[in-house]
Amino acid sequence: MSTLSLLEIRGLDLDFGTPSGRVHALRNVSLDVPAAQVVGIVGESGSGKSTLAYTVMGLLPENAQVTAGAIVFEGRNLLDMPASVRQSLLGDRLSMIFQDPMTALNPVRSIESQMIDIQHHERRSRSEKRAAAIAMLRRVGIPDPDSRIGGFPHQFSGGMRQRICIAMALLVKPALLIADEPTTALDATLEVQIIHLLKDLQKEIGCAVLFVSHHLGAVAELCDRVAVMYAGEVVEQGTVRDIFHNPRHPYTRALLKCDPGRIRKSTRNLPTIPGEVPSLLGVKQGCIFSQRCPSALDRCSQQSPAEYRIGLEHRARCHLLGEEQKVSA
């Protein structure tokens, strides 16, 4: 399985140095992104899902430090590479869409020059690059791209700008597209449009997508595989059906239960997850979710749970699964 993966993240630990101590933002994160598949990362704020995306891109702030693990992309460890080699992958084999389409584009340069610049890896004439840019803009649904390509970002609405960002990211035909909450800043009607666009384009280009979102509905619609993150750890991962139909980690279950989109009947008492996400400062003992877990055992607060295999691709980190397996064995 691992030989087929385009991106393999193995045991990744990442700390942020802060004046009040080290924040362990990612702990022992392992994740596979197979070629031409859409992998979703879901989690709430503070779960480290965006940090993970930025780590793969190598766009972390200075105080971030990878303390262990490897990020293997197309057979090479990104973390061992010289910076220049790694940088040359960006905008070529790897590209990214950001959360805020308002700030992701350079406001003082035209869409045309930004879209031509992004193709700097390719040896083509300027007019060919321009034609490719126009074709891509048309593909993402910008009306009248021939004349609008000369426009500046502020002349486009938020939804249009996100389409332009997608066009730019996919123009270079990357092997892996990283999308960090691309629909969060958009209205629901636009969100649906953008998700469909991403899905269609992904099939056309055949690239893999790492889709980071807190929106369960968007992940369910778009992704083939899902990883659920909580407080810097991947607590459960599997195919989209594993996660949404047969969630095994208590956090995944609680999260799914909370989604108001799943509650059909009108109720005055919506389910919640009591408690707060724990601080990631200092060393943590036991399962990170144990304080909020409805079915926590004694050992949950002392012993860190191992990863249990539930199905072919379905894995979760929870002591309860260990208990079950003992009983069945």
Binding site: F16, G17, T18, P19, S20, V23, A25, E44, S45, G46, S47, G48, K49, S50, T51, Y54, L59, L60, P61, N63, A64, Q99, E181, T184, H214
Partner: peptide, 14 residues
């Protein structure tokens, strides 16, 4: 939701 900015702000310890 968690943006890298938030982490940065936290990390800068303003």
């Amino acid at each position: 939701m968690t943006s890298i900015q938030a982490i940065r702000a936290e990390a800068n310890g303003e």
